[in-house]
Design a protein around this nucleic acid. Structure first.
Length: 385
DNA sequence: TCTGGGGTCCTAGGACCC
DNA sequence: TCTGGGGTCCTAGGACCC
C-alpha cells in the first residue's frame, strides 16, 4: 500500500512524518506537505501517527542496546550510537554483533533497524545509511575511498540544502571532490563550517560517544502551530502559557533550572521572530517562566497574525539548591510547591487532571504538548517503514 | 487545506570593559 | 575633529540533523 504517516491537515499539521517503502517510485519526501505528496501519487493513503507507540518502541530499543554496552548516545528518538571501545574481547566480531542486535529488535519489538559500524560517529552514521531497511554495513577508514568518496555531496552528513548549493556552485558534486579540494579556499568561502565538512569528506571526525542524560542536555523547548492565525494578545499569552506548562514540567522532570528563556513565533507569512533573555537567577517555576515569556513576546510582537508559537529554556543548571534558600523569597517557595503538586497529579492521573482556569472555554488546550504522550509533537521518522 | 516539532551549533554585531 | 586593540558577554538569526 502506498501510504505515509501524516499529520492532520485541518489543524495545519499536514506534512509527511514517515513513508512506506512503496512510496519510493513516487519520490515522496519526509517533511513535505501532504498536498505535495498527493500530487505525486493521487491515491496516497495517509494514516495518523501513534506517538505513544513510537516513544515506547524507542525506549524498548534503547533498553536492548543497554544490555550490550553502557555507553549509549541517543541522537534522536530513533537513532543511537553505541560505543564498544575496549570491549573487543567480549565482542570480537562486530558484524555478527550488529546482526544479533538488529535481529533481536525485529523479533522482540517487531520493527526493523539499520546499523552502521565504524571507528567514529561520523563514519558509523554514514554507514547506517547504506542498507535500508534492515541492513548492517561497515565504513571503516580503509573503506573511505571506495564507499564514501563516490557518494553525492548531498549525502554527506552536515550538507543540507544551502550548503549543497554553495558546494555545487564551486563545482563540487561528489564527496571525493570536496575531500580533495584546497582547504584554504573552502575556509574562505564556507568558514569553519566548511573546514568541518572538508574533514567529514575525508572521514575525519573524533568526537566521543557521550552518554545521554539530563545533565548534558542543552535546552528544552516546545512549539506549536495554532489551528488558526492568532491576532489577540490575550490568546497569544494563553497559548504561550500552555507551552510553558509543558516546557517547565519537562524542566523540573530533568531536575534542572534554566537561566535563559526564549520566545519565538512564526507569522502567517512564515517569517520567524525570536527574543531571548538571560537572567542572573535560575528558575524552574511555571509562573516565572510564563511571566518572562509574556514580557519577551510583548517586546517583539507588532500585531501580525501568528501561525506558530515556541518557548525554549536553556543555560540549564542543577536545581539541587533551590532559589528560596538563596533569595528567601516566599512567593518562589509556594510556587515551587504548587508546581510539584500539579506535576504529581498529572503524572498520576494524566495531563488533563489539572487545568488552569484561564484555559476553560478558551479554545486553547492546557498543556498542549510534551510529556503527556498526547497527539502532538511527532518527530520526523527519517527511515522508511 | 501549502509548508510540524525538537534539538544543536555557529556567526555576526553591539555593548562593555580594560 | 580624531583615534587604538583585545577580550568577553549577550542576542538574533541561520544552518543542520532527526
Amino acid at each position: 500500500m502506498v501510504a505515509v504517516v501524516g499529520g492532520d491537515e485541518k489543524s495545519r499539521h499536514g506534512i509527511v512524518l514517515a513513508k512506506s517503502m512503496l512510496t519510493k517510485p513516487y519520490n515522496i519526501q519526509t517533511g513535505e506537505s501532504l498536498m505535495e505528496a498527493k500530487l505525486k501519487y493521487r491515491d496516497l493513503v495517509v494514516v495518523p501517527p501513534k506517538y505513544d507507540v513510537f516513544v515506547k518502541s524507542s525506549k524498548a530499543m534503547n533498553e536492548i542496546f543497554s544490555q550490550y554496552t553502557p555507553i549509549i548516545q541517543k541522537y534522536s528518538i530513533d537513532e543511537s550510537w553505541l560505543d564498544f571501545t575496549g570491549m573487543e574481547n567480549q565482542y570480537p566480531a562486530p558484524i555478527e554483533l550488529a546482526n544479533e542486535i538488529k535481529d533481536r529488535i525485529k523479533n522482540e519489538l517487531g520493527f526493523t533497524v539499520s546499523v552502521g559500524i565504524s571507528s567514529s560517529k561520523l563514519l558509523s552514521k554514514m554507514a547506517s545509511e547504506f542498507k535500508k531497511p534492515d541492513g548492517v554495513s561497515t565504513l571503516y577508514p580503509s573503506e573511505i575511498k571506495t564507499k564514501l568518496f563516490p557518494l553525492d555531496i548531498r549525502e554527506l552528513f552536515g550538507v543540507g540544502k544551502k550548503t549543497e548549493k554553495k558546494l555545487r556552485d564551486m563545482n563540487i558534486n561528489f564527496i571525493s571532490e570536496l575531500a580533495n579540494y584546497d582547504i584554504t579556499i573552502i575556509k574562505q568561502r564556507l568558514k569553519s563550517y566548511g573546514v568541518m565538512l572538508w574533514h567529514y569528506a575525508n572521514g575525519i571526525e573524533h568526537s566521543p560517544v557521550k552518554k545521554s542524560n539530563s545533565l548534558n542536555m542543552k535546552g528544552i523547548g516546545n512549539s506549536t502551530t495554532a489551528s488558526f492565525d492568532v491576532v489577540k494578545r490575550s490568546e497569544a499569552h494563553l497559548i504561550l502559557l500552555s507551552i510553558v506548562e509543558s516546557v517547565a514540567m519537562r524542566l523540573r522532570d530533568s531536575e534542572n533550572n534554566c537561566r535563559l528563556v526564549e520566545v519565538s513565533y512564526v507569522d502567517k507569512n512564515f517569517i520567524g521572530y525570536s527574543r531571548q533573555r538571560k537572567f542572573p537567577f535560575s528558575t524552574d517555576s511555571t509562573k516565572k517562566i510564563a511571566e518572562i515569556a509574556y514580557m519577551l513576546f510583548d517586546e517583539i510582537w507588532k500585531g501580525e497574525p501568528i501561525r506558530k508559537f515556541g518557548v525554549r529554556v536553556s543555560e540549564l543548571c542543577t536545581n539541587e539548591f533551590t532559589q528560596s534558600t538563596l533569595y528567601d523569597d516566599k512567593d518562589i517557595d509556594t510556587q515551587n510547591k504548587v508546581d510539584n503538586v500539579i506535576d504529581n497529579l498529572r503524572l498520576r492521573f494524566g495531563s488533563k487532571a489539572v487545568t488552569r482556569a484561564s484555559f476553560i472555554h478558551s479554545g486553547v488546550r492546557g498543556l498542549s504538548i510534551g510529556m503527556g504522550g498526547g497527539e502532538e509533537g511527532y518527530p520526523l521518522m527519517s527511515s522508511q517503514l
